[in-house]
Design a protein around this nucleic acid. Sequence first.
DNA 1: GTCTATATAGGGATAGAC
DNA 2: GTCTATCCCTATATAGAC
Lengths: 164, 164
Amino acid sequence: MRQIAGEVGVQAGALYNYTPDKQSLLFRLMRDHMDGLLAARAERGDGGGALDRLEDFTRFHIRYHIERPNEVFIAYMELRNLEPENFAVIERLRGEYESELEGILRDGVAEGVFHLTDPKIASLAVIAMLTGVNTWYRPQGRLTLDDVETLYWDMVRGAVGAAV
Amino acid sequence: MRQIAGEVGVQAGALYNYTPDKQSLLFRLMRDHMDGLLAARAERGDGGGALDRLEDFTRFHIRYHIERPNEVFIAYMELRNLEPENFAVIERLRGEYESELEGILRDGVAEGVFHLTDPKIASLAVIAMLTGVNTWYRPQGRLTLDDVETLYWDMVRGAVGAAV
DNA sequence: GTCTATATAGGGATAGAC
DNA sequence: GTCTATCCCTATATAGAC
């Protein structure tokens, strides 16, 4: 709290005009992040076949997360510091996001364009793979964000068993 | 330190007969974990074609990490609490592990059994996907560990562009 | 709305007795 | 090798002045 206050330019006590306690502040940060993620995702058109929707999801996920490294870092590293009720809320929001990907995968299987046995596990695997970009990507690196999107899209397409 | 002492059954001060300070204790935990991982990996035979070696790596990684949830949790969540020199050591060990996978992928490309453009990125993507199992797998769940290995091996094989 | 001051708690680490 | 006791620092949160 003192560090936040310092960077904002006030004393620690002054922060309590804006949050009842530290837990509420952390929870709001994480819930806002998840709300923003779901809202941004909802704005993307969900038309087209499963292959196109999966490509859109892949590129969206990488870009949205890379542009918000601090929020993503907190969303993962501070999960353990949420009180049980708050944790449940964040987990539910995360589940919503995962469900959208799972739906795309199920549709793709039904369409015959994806070949996989467990859409639920596949959705978790894909999201873990994509979010992993945040651990190594640097804007000054050898790859542009577009390069990264394309590399990962190739791997995701293969992982779900889409015809080459 | 008080919590560790309590679970061991001694007072906090007594721990300092075994570690000079908390940072050293954390560093030793993490270094031992990485040493154990590399040693266990080195014991697996590295013969055969790239496809077989990749399957072995995939199954090994999932199983080794699932059997050590606490160490893996610490290895990821406490990275930010390592002092710079200690951090560098852990990162070097992690890089060794990643390099082995990268080598398998390069060999597979050379053999013509894998089709991917960036073995380095692919190795990071695969490891992120595999380590993600630790966030959701529960021994009492609907899938056996062998089921999980097979599901992920199918996805890894696809992600690296191995012929179906 | 911010400040200073402070209550309260907890953690890392050390000293010295046994 | 462990204990008790304690030093010192930091942290969250509150109270009351301005």
